[in-house]
Amino acid sequence: MKIFLKYGSLIAFLISLLGLLYLIKNNSILSLNPIALIIQIASVGIMVWARITFGIKSFHVSSNATKEKLITNGPYKWWRHPIYASIIYFFLACLIAFPNYKTFIAVLIIVFSTYVRMLFEEKELIETFENYSEYSKKAKRIIPFIF
Rank of each mutant, 00 (worst) to 15 (best):
W79S: 07
A106N: 09
T114H: 00
S113D: 08
F91H: 15
I71Y: 02
F91S: 09
K102M: 14
H81V: 04
F104A: 15
T103Y: 07
I105Y: 15
I109E: 00
Y76R: 05
F91K: 10
G74N: 02
P99L: 12
F98Y: 14
N64S: 04
P99Y: 05
Y89N: 10
H81T: 04
A97L: 09
L92C: 15
I110D: 09
I110T: 03
I83T: 05
T114C: 00
C94A: 12
K67N: 10
G74K: 05
F104G: 12
Y101S: 12
N64D: 13
R80I: 03
I88S: 04
L92R: 06
H81W: 05
T66A: 10
Y89W: 15
A65E: 05
L108N: 12
L95P: 14
I83E: 11
W79M: 06
Y89M: 11
T114F: 01
G74Y: 05
F104H: 11
A93C: 09
P75E: 11
G74V: 01
I71S: 02
E68M: 00
T114P: 00
T72L: 01
S62W: 12
A106I: 12
A85W: 03
P99M: 02
Y84M: 10
W78Y: 15
F98N: 10
I105T: 15
